[in-house]
Nucleic acid binder design. Structure first.
Lengths: 204, 204
DNA sequence: TTGCAATTCTGCACTGAGTGCAGTTATGGT
DNA sequence: ACCATAACTGCACTCAGTGCAGAATTGCAA
């Protein structure tokens, strides 16, 4: 076989291509007709696969919205491992998500932008986003606990991570409720961080 | 009409009774066969109503799990209004949920107990719980902002409430993952509060 | 190149949630 | 007793998601 070696087998490459085709088709259709207005049959047809086949790539329609959830958790965990000496748990988390959000094109990607709009307009999407976050939380909490074994027990670590992610979500949602919120994503992000830091770093 | 005046009309009384019958039937069936193993047709049959009628009482199967969501928000808002002078926002929230949870039989009620189990075992229930919480958050945040107008803008208030609820959720879920967590709910609740306070009140 | 095993794709038939509609029944007031 | 209104219900429908079985594709070895 004369193909490049970027990915092992033909199967894997083809599968990755199909997966991306589904995401692309869904992104376009969601933008066009909204989340609820798009059926899985529509997506499958647009991606040129059988309806049934969709479910061998994504377990549900909702999963389609957060295809990169795993990557985020990995980034957060890496940031925890590389913490500065003397850095407090909350500070690590804040720095972590800072890096995650500025390091990649997350805030700019089409699906990410779309997701923000859908989170605003479609309750089901918002609910799903929360669930994805919570699933990540426990994993991140476990690593935070290991990094700060002498300061935080596991439950306290979970509470810390939960507080952080909860603050981010709530601030984000409140900001999204403002009309024209998406016109200046960078500004929105700055305001979000300011609010999160005030909520979490204010001394008691 | 010679009926008592507890509730105005026959219609209202009958409707309330049917609603309760649905909740009771569902509680029993969920406990018996689990959430996923119970169909709406089952519940309707057990409550002796037509399947279609179920949807004129509850918009979805999930809504059945949190029939008292509104009450909680009301309690939280009332607690905010009655805040002590000098009390900090986070402290108000902590006191608030303290009152909500100890003041009523929430933690002891059958449906509430059941819900904790289901949250642990059924992802759909967990997701729904989060969504209910988030919906409450913005409303509570608005009141917190009004109560602390000179200290917190709206986004900061949202972040504060989100941090609090996020910490509670995460700690609760971590605790529920421990085997035998439900054997001693009071102890679990104490550990939860300790973790939440450590996460939120630790000075920076 | 051929052949075969493993994997993937797909259609079909099914269950269950949820909606719209239309007809029936129960209730409140006159 | 009568009527307007609200509630209840069956029916037919759409869509998400699953299990199964057969067809098509791919990987590998001869």
């Amino acid at each position: 076989m004369q193909y490049a070696v970027g990915m092992e087998t033909l199967r894997e490459r083809k599968r990755a291509r199909t997966r991306q085709a589904i995401i692309d088709a869904a992104t376009e259709l969601f933008a066009e007709r909204g989340y609820d207005g798009t059926t899985i049959a529509d997506i499958a047809a647009a991606a040129d696969i059988g309806t049934r086949t969709f479910f061998s790539y994504f377990a549900s329609k909702e999963e389609l919205l957060f295809p990169e959830a795993d990557l985020r958790v990995a980034a957060a965990i890496a940031a925890i491992e590389n913490r500065q000496p003397g850095e407090r748990p909350v500070e690590v988390l804040i720095r972590t998500l800072h890096e995650v959000n500025t390091g990649n094109t997350e805030m700019v990607g089409t699906m990410a932008q779309l997701r923000l709009q859908l989170m605003h307009s479609t309750p089901a999407v918002r609910g799903r986003a929360l669930q994805v976050q919570l699933d990540s939380q426990l994993e991140i909490a476990a690593h935070l606990h290991r990094a700060y074994a002498d300061e935080l027990n596991l439950v306290e670590a979970a509470a810390t991570v939960g507080a952080f992610i909860g603050a981010v979500s709530a601030a984000l949602q409140m900001l999204l409720d403002e009309p024209g919120a998406l016109d200046d994503p960078a500004k929105m992000q700055r305001r979000m961080w300011a609010a999160v830091e005030k909520a979490l770093l204010t001394p008691s």
